[in-house]
Amino acid sequence: MTKLAIFDCDGTLVDSGATIHRALSETFDRHGLEIPPARESRKVIGLSLTQAMAALLPEAADADHAELAETYKGCFHQARRNGLVEEPLFDGILELLDSFETEGWLLAVATGKSDRGLRLCLESHGLHPRFLSLQTADRHPSKPSPSMALAAMADAGATPAKTVVIGDTSYDMGMAVAAGATGIGAGWGYHDETELIAAGAVAVANDPAEVMAIAREAVNG
């Protein structure tokens, strides 16, 4: 039976926090707003852009959130054109992907990035061909909606019982629970262990090397 591992991108596959915070800082500066501290800003990574702005500025109007999201896109695209986007893979990710593939798992990504942003990120690391299904904010509501996970399972022909979601945020774990899949917390990312467990993670891996054993138990148990 098909086994599927769905990965979040930012904070799980790649460490993009510094680049995202720089783009947020420029966005807020352009709008005359005070940027929240980096730790607070990183808490919204994983949400779709408009939802992330709403989480950072809940008192602002919906139109303002949408405008901020558009400004952020422009800042990020300019940073990419200037060669300033840094999205290094976390240590151990390549080995983890190898382990999943060696054991016959299919791989997918579910992310708040756009199609373009995800493609460029994965291509920069030579990873794009390894993922059967790529689900982004361009076609889905924001996590924790199960939409992205359900679409990835449909692409792979996998059942929720044979699907794990590896992600670093409570939004990833909420998506997994809503889709009936198993959520495995990526403890090397941007939310802490208590948040991940509270959102439904069955376990939190301290590093990528710990994920495989948790995934095996999840689908075999």
Rank of each mutant, 00 (worst) to 15 (best):
G17V: 09
D29R: 15
G17N: 12
S16K: 01
H31Y: 15
R30V: 07
S25Q: 07
V14W: 02
D15L: 01
L33R: 15
D8C: 10
L24T: 03
F7W: 10
A18F: 14
T2H: 01
A23T: 11
T27V: 12
T27E: 09
L4T: 10
T27C: 11
G11W: 10
F28C: 12
I6A: 01
G11C: 10
A23D: 07
D29S: 14
V14S: 01
C9S: 13
A18W: 14
L33V: 15
T12F: 06
S16L: 02
I6Y: 03
T19R: 05
H31G: 01
E26A: 15
H31D: 09
T27I: 09
V14A: 06
A5M: 05
G32E: 06
A5L: 02
H31S: 06
S25A: 14
S16C: 05
T2K: 04
D8Q: 13
G17I: 08
L24F: 14
R30M: 10
H21A: 03
T12A: 03
F28E: 00
R30A: 12
L33M: 15
L13S: 06
V14I: 15
R22E: 13
D15I: 00
M1P: 02
T19A: 13
T2N: 07
F28S: 02
H21M: 04
V14L: 09
S25P: 01
C9N: 14
H21F: 10
D29W: 04
A5K: 02
R22L: 13
L4M: 12
H31N: 09
D8R: 11
S25F: 00
D29G: 01
M1K: 05
I6C: 07
F28T: 07
F28N: 02
M1F: 02
V14K: 02
D8W: 10
I20K: 02
T27M: 08
L24A: 02
L33A: 14
L4G: 05
D10I: 03
L13P: 00
F28W: 12
I6Q: 02
L33S: 10
H31P: 00
S25T: 15
S16M: 01
D8F: 09
T2V: 11
M1V: 06
T12S: 03
L13N: 06
L33W: 15
E34Y: 09
H21I: 06
A23Q: 03
L4C: 13
R30N: 03
G11P: 06
G32C: 04
M1Y: 08
T27S: 05
C9K: 09
M1I: 03
S16T: 12
T2D: 01
T2A: 05
D29E: 11
H31L: 15
T19F: 09
T19H: 08
R30I: 05
E26M: 12
H21L: 05
E26R: 11
K3H: 14
L13Q: 11
T12W: 08
G17E: 08
G32V: 05
L4F: 13
E34N: 08
D29H: 05
I20N: 06
A5I: 07
H31K: 12
L24S: 04
F7G: 04
S25V: 04
K3S: 14
G17P: 04
V14T: 14
